[in-house]
Simulated assay, not measured.
Amino acid sequence: MIVVTGATGGLGSATVEHLLKRVPADQIGVSVRDTAKAQHFADRGVRVRQGSYEDPGDAFAGAEQVLLISGNDPAADLVSLHGRAIEAAVAAGARRIVYTSQHGAAPDNPYLPSGLHLATEAILGDSGVAWTALRNGAYGPLDQVLGPWQQTGEIAQPEDGPVPYTDRADIAEATAALLAGDRSVDGPVTLAAPTAVTFGDFAEIASGLTGRTIKRVVLDDESWVAAQVANSAPEQATHFMLTWYQATRAGYFAESGPLLAELLGREPRTVADRLAETI
Rank of each mutant, 00 (worst) to 15 (best):
A192F: 02
E267L: 14
S114A: 01
V197P: 03
Q27V: 03
S232H: 15
L116A: 13
H117I: 09
G57D: 10
T198L: 04
A42P: 00
A247G: 13
A119I: 00
Y139F: 12
L260N: 03
S127Y: 10
V66D: 07
W149H: 01
A174I: 04
A85H: 09
A89D: 03
G12R: 02
R95A: 04
A7C: 04
Q50N: 14
M241C: 13
G45Y: 01
G29A: 07
I69K: 05
A105R: 01
A233Q: 15
A196Y: 05
S184W: 14
Q228D: 13
P188I: 02
G115S: 10
P56L: 09
Y99C: 06
T35E: 11
T166P: 02
L146Q: 06
G161L: 05
F199K: 05
Q151G: 14
D73W: 00
R269F: 12
G128N: 01
F202W: 04
D186E: 10
L264V: 02
P148E: 08
T213N: 10
G62R: 05
L260Q: 01
E54I: 01
G6R: 04
S31N: 06
L134I: 02
L11A: 00
S207A: 00
A119W: 02
E222T: 15
L219W: 12
F60Q: 06
P141N: 10
V218Y: 05
S52K: 01
T190N: 12
A254G: 04
L116D: 12
A91Y: 02
K37W: 03
G9I: 04
A177M: 12
D58E: 09
G83Q: 05
G10M: 09
T8A: 07
G10D: 13
A250P: 10
E267A: 14
L259S: 03
T198I: 11
E173I: 06
V225F: 03
E204Q: 12
A203F: 07
A7N: 02
Q50G: 15
Q102G: 11
A42N: 07
E159T: 15
A88S: 08
G29P: 12
A206I: 00
A272N: 14
K215R: 15
Q144H: 15
G51P: 05
G187L: 01
T35V: 13
L260V: 00
G104S: 03
T248L: 04
R44F: 03
M241A: 13
F60G: 09
R96G: 06
G83H: 04
D273N: 05
T35C: 11
P158G: 12
R22P: 07
V145W: 11
G181C: 09
D26S: 14
E262P: 12
D182N: 14
L275T: 05
L146E: 00
S52M: 07
D170I: 05
V48Q: 07
T190Y: 11
V32C: 08
A89N: 05
I155C: 08
A193Q: 01
E222P: 09
Y53F: 15
G9P: 03
Q151R: 15
A89R: 08
E159W: 13
T35M: 11
D167L: 01
A172Q: 07
A92S: 03
I69Y: 08
V129K: 06
A180W: 06
T210Y: 00
G115D: 10
I28N: 13
